[in-house]
Measured scan of single mutants.
Amino acid sequence: MQIFVKTATGKTITLEVEPSDTIENVKAKIQDKEGIPPDQQRLAFAGKQLEDGRTLSDYNIQKESTLHLALR
């Protein structure tokens, strides 16, 4: 499925993911596309910060959802 990640600079990244993917996997995909190390990424959805060990389906993130990326 496709999801979107909006960066602090307003850029939107499109990612191909599975509901079973962990947040860690998603951060690795962002690193592949943007070169941002996962340990510098903070992802949020619906106002909640997402934890590495959880999956997209844990957070009820569905196709075409938009996550927000902040850098630490």
Score class of each variant (00 low, 15 high):
Thr9Lys: 10
Thr9Ala: 09
Ile36Val: 06
Gly10Met: 10
Ala44Val: 14
Ala46Tyr: 09
Phe45Gln: 03
Gln40Met: 06
Thr55His: 07
Gly47Lys: 05
Ile36Tyr: 12
Glu51Met: 07
Val26Gly: 00
Thr55Asn: 05
Val26Ser: 01
Leu15Val: 07
Ala8Asn: 10
Ala28Asn: 10
Glu18Trp: 11
Val26Leu: 12
Glu16Thr: 09
Arg42Asn: 11
Gln2Thr: 09
Leu71His: 06
Ala8Val: 13
Ile61Lys: 00
Ala70Ile: 09
Leu43His: 01
Ala8Ser: 09
Lys6Cys: 06
Lys63Asn: 14
Leu67Val: 08
Leu15His: 00
Gly35Thr: 04
Asp39Ile: 15
Leu67Cys: 02
Pro38Phe: 11
Lys27Ala: 02
Pro19Ile: 08
Asp58Thr: 06
Gln41Arg: 02
Glu34Asn: 11
Lys27His: 02
Pro19Arg: 13
Ala8Thr: 11
Ser57Gly: 12
Ile3Pro: 00
Glu51Val: 15
Gln49Ile: 09
Phe45His: 08
Ile30Thr: 02
His68Met: 13
Lys11Cys: 05
Asp32Gly: 08
Thr9Ile: 09
Glu51Gly: 04
Glu64Thr: 11
Lys29Phe: 11
Asp32Thr: 09
Ile30Ser: 01
Leu71Cys: 05
Gly53Arg: 07
Ile61Met: 03
Gln40Ser: 11
Glu51Thr: 13
Asp21Arg: 02
Asp39Val: 08
Glu18Pro: 04
Val5Trp: 01
Thr9Pro: 12
Thr12Asn: 10
Val17Cys: 04
Val26Asp: 00
Phe4Pro: 01
Ile30Gly: 00
Glu24Asp: 07
Leu15Tyr: 02
Gln2Ser: 08
Ala8Phe: 11
Ala70Glu: 09
Asp32Glu: 14
Gln49Met: 13
His68Leu: 15
Asp58Tyr: 11
Asn60Met: 08
Gly53Leu: 13
Phe45Thr: 03
Ser57Gln: 14
Asp21Lys: 02
Phe45Asp: 02
Ser57Cys: 04
Glu24Gln: 07
Gly35Ser: 08
Gln40Trp: 09
Arg72Gln: 10
Thr55Ile: 09
Leu67Glu: 01
Asp58Lys: 03
Ala46Met: 12
Arg42Thr: 12
Val17His: 03
Thr55Ala: 06
Lys33Leu: 15
Ile23Asp: 01
Asp58Gly: 04
Thr66Pro: 02
Gln2His: 14
Arg54Glu: 05
Gly35Ile: 02
Leu15Phe: 05
Arg42His: 10
Thr7Lys: 11
Asp39Ser: 14
Asp52Gln: 05
Pro37Asn: 12
Thr7Tyr: 11
Tyr59Glu: 03
Thr66Trp: 12
Ile61Trp: 01
Gly47Ala: 05
Val17Leu: 06
Leu43Trp: 02
Ser57Thr: 14
Leu69Thr: 02
Asp32Arg: 07
Leu43Pro: 01
Thr22Ala: 11
Glu18Ile: 11
Ile61Gln: 01
Leu15Ser: 00
Phe45Asn: 03
Ile23Cys: 02
Pro38Val: 11
Leu15Thr: 01
Leu67Trp: 02
Ile3Ser: 00
Ala8Pro: 08
Ile30His: 00
Val26Ala: 02
Tyr59Gln: 03
Ser20Asp: 14
Thr12Gly: 04
Leu50Trp: 01
Glu18Ser: 14
Gln49Phe: 11
Phe4Gln: 05
Thr14Arg: 15
Leu50Phe: 02
Lys6Phe: 10
Pro37Gly: 06
Arg72Cys: 05
Ala46Asn: 13
Gln2Ala: 14
Leu69Trp: 02
Ala70Gln: 15
Gln40Cys: 05
Arg54Pro: 05
Glu51Asn: 12
Ile23Phe: 03
Val5Glu: 00
Ile30Trp: 01
Val17Ala: 06
Lys11Leu: 09
Lys48Ile: 12
Asp39Met: 14
Gln49Pro: 15
Glu64Gly: 15
Ile23Arg: 01
Val17Trp: 03
Leu71Met: 08
Leu43Thr: 01
Thr66Met: 11
Thr7Asn: 09
Gln49Ala: 11
Arg54Gly: 06
Tyr59Met: 03
Lys63Gly: 14
Phe4Asn: 05
Gln62Asn: 14
Gly35Arg: 10
Asp32Ser: 15
Ala28His: 08
Thr14Glu: 11
Ala8Gln: 09
Arg54Trp: 08
Lys6Asn: 12
Arg54Lys: 11
Thr66Gly: 02
Val5Thr: 02
Asp32Tyr: 07
Ile23Pro: 02
Lys29Ala: 11
Thr22Arg: 14
Gly35Val: 03
Gly35Pro: 03
Leu69Arg: 01
Lys29Val: 05
Thr7Ile: 11
Thr55Lys: 13
Thr7Phe: 12
Gly53Val: 12
Arg54Phe: 12
Phe45Leu: 05
Asp58Met: 06
Glu24Met: 10
Arg72His: 06
Gln49Thr: 11
Ile13Phe: 12
Leu69Ala: 02
Leu67Asn: 01
Glu24His: 09
Ser57Asp: 08
Asn25Arg: 09
Lys29Asp: 04
Ala44Pro: 00
Gly47His: 11
Pro19Asp: 13
Met1Asp: 02
Glu51Trp: 05
Thr9Gln: 13
Ser57Lys: 13
Glu64Tyr: 13
Glu18Arg: 09
Gln62Trp: 11
Leu71Asn: 15
Thr66Glu: 15
Gln62Glu: 12
Ser57Glu: 13
Gln41Phe: 11
Glu34Thr: 09
Ala46Asp: 08
Tyr59Ala: 03
Gln40Ile: 08
Gly47Ile: 02
Leu50Ala: 02
Ala44Ile: 10
Glu34Trp: 12
Lys33His: 15
Pro19Gly: 08
Glu51Lys: 08
Asp32Ala: 08
Lys29Pro: 00
Leu67Asp: 01
Met1Arg: 03
Met1Glu: 02
Asp21Phe: 09
Leu56Pro: 01
Glu34Met: 13
Ile36Met: 06
Lys27Leu: 03
Glu51Tyr: 08
Arg54Asn: 12
Thr9His: 15
Leu67Thr: 02
Thr12Trp: 13
Leu71Lys: 10
Lys6Ile: 15
Glu18Lys: 12
Ser20Cys: 05
Leu71Ile: 08
Gly47Leu: 04
Leu43Tyr: 03
Lys6Pro: 01
Thr66Tyr: 08
Leu50Thr: 02
Asp52Phe: 04
Glu24Thr: 06
Ile61Cys: 02
Ser65Leu: 03
Glu34Arg: 05
Asn60Leu: 06
Lys63Asp: 13
Glu16Asp: 10
Lys33Glu: 11
Glu24Gly: 12
Met1Tyr: 14
Lys33Cys: 04
Asp39Lys: 08
Ser57Phe: 11
Leu50Gln: 01
Val17Thr: 06
Val17Gly: 02
Lys63Trp: 10
Val26Pro: 00
His68Gly: 05
Ala8Lys: 12
Thr7Leu: 14
Ala44Ser: 15
Leu69Lys: 00
Lys6Leu: 15
Leu67Ala: 01
Ile30Asp: 00
Met1Pro: 02
Asp39Pro: 12
Phe4Tyr: 10
Leu56Ile: 10
Thr7Glu: 06
Gly53Trp: 11
Thr14Ile: 08
Ser65Gln: 11
Leu56Asn: 01
Ala8Ile: 06
Lys27Glu: 01
Asp21Gly: 04
Ser57Ile: 09
Gly10Cys: 05
Ala70Leu: 06
Pro38Cys: 04
Glu16Ile: 14
Leu71Ala: 09
Lys63Arg: 12
Asp32Val: 13
Arg42Cys: 06
Thr66Ser: 05
Ala70Trp: 13
Thr7Ser: 12
Met1Phe: 14
Ser20Phe: 15
Ile3Val: 09
Lys63Gln: 15
Leu56Arg: 00
Thr9Asn: 08
Met1Gly: 02
His68Tyr: 07
Pro38Asn: 11
Tyr59Val: 02
Thr55Glu: 04
Pro38Lys: 08
Glu34Leu: 14
Lys33Asp: 04
Ala28Leu: 10
Gln2Lys: 15
Lys48Ser: 11
Leu69Asn: 01
Ser65Met: 12
Gln40Glu: 14
Gln2Tyr: 13
Ser65Tyr: 14
Ile23Leu: 05
Ile61Pro: 01
Ala44Asn: 15
